[in-house]
């Protein structure tokens, strides 16, 4: 018998193939009395690259924060491969919005990426060489290894975004939740990030991305959720990403799709 006893098994994350990667039941989040998310049911099958789209204030960021328990829902359940997030958090990697942190913080690129290992390390234990090596490998994967010792305030927007991606890669997760990874990056960086996301899917990971640009949804993603406080639709892009659903999500404000109206 190990010291941890019967509990031990419970702490090891599991990912049975017959379970959806993410499953939300009746999830409702409210800020004071205003519902931000209302009664969301959602199933994300494993191995998809999914966009969450919807107008401003639709609750896209809130949705991924609620999945990770960063925001407490007033009702509903979250299951990651069939079990609550608290037991499965090792399976989930997170890329927050780039602007959510102070990039003038006194630290270097490699240090930030190493933070992806903190969950594995647990309390008090310091990162060791092995952790920094893993962080360096992740930096190589996003093409930033020569900036490893650069102060983070010297990075461009696209580089900051890739640092956050590398930090999530270091988490070595099965599911990645990303909040607007294309925000404020140039076209070249956007292409390299898309290539990375598709590589992750190729490796069997599930990637959920809060996305703004409706023009690129069909090109980048194979799965999509349309959100506007309620879940409008969710499924394969070619079935769900229709003008009718977009109207429902955006109201009358959407005048595009098919015609390349704005650029």
């Amino acid at each position: 018998m190990s010291i941890t006893g019967g509990n031990h098994k419970d702490r090891v994350p599991t990912y049975p193939a017959d379970q959806p990667a993410i499953r939300l039941d009746d999830l409702t989040v409210a800020y004071r009395d205003n519902p931000v998310l209302w009664d969301i049911d959602l199933e994300v099958p494993p191995g998809v690259l999914m966009a969450i789209v919807g107008p401003n204030g639709a609750g896209k960021t809130t949705l991924i924060k609620a999945i990770m328990g960063l925001i407490k829902p007033v009702a509903g359940q979250v299951a990651i491969f069939g079990r609550p997030y608290e037991k499965q958090r090792r399976l989930v990697g997170y890329v927050p919005q780039r602007a959510s942190v102070d990039w003038d913080f006194p630290t270097v690129v490699l240090d930030v990426v190493t933070m992806g290992r903190y969950g594995e390390l647990g309390w008090v234990r310091r990162p060791r060489k092995k952790d920094r090596d893993l962080a360096f490998e992740a930096l190589e994967e996003v093409g930033l290894s020569d900036l490893a010792h650069r102060q983070i305030s010297q990075l461009s927007g696209g580089q900051q975004q890739r640092v956050f991606l590398a930090r999530a890669l270091v988490q070595d997760a099965l599911i990645y939740l990303m909040d607007e990874p294309f925000q404020g990056v140039d076209a070249v960086t956007e292409r390299s990030i898309v290539a990375l996301l598709q590589e992750l899917r190729r490796r069997g990971k599930t990637v959920v991305v809060v996305h703004h640009d409706l023009q690129t949804v069909s090109e980048y993603f194979d799965w999509v959720t349309l959100l506007n406080v309620r879940r409008i639709a969710s499924g394969p892009v070619d079935e769900v990403f229709t003008e009718k659903n977009l109207r429902l999500a955006y109201g009358g404000r959407v005048a595009y799709l098919g015609h390349h109206s704005h650029k």
Binding site: Y94, M115, R126
Partner: peptide, 18 residues
């Protein structure tokens, strides 16, 4: 390590389980 996480990116820390 925990204080650094708190000062730089508390949301990420919370997501990691701290």
């Amino acid at each position: 390590k925990e204080f650094k996480l708190l000062s730089f990116d508390p949301d990420f820390g919370q997501a990691l389980g701290f």
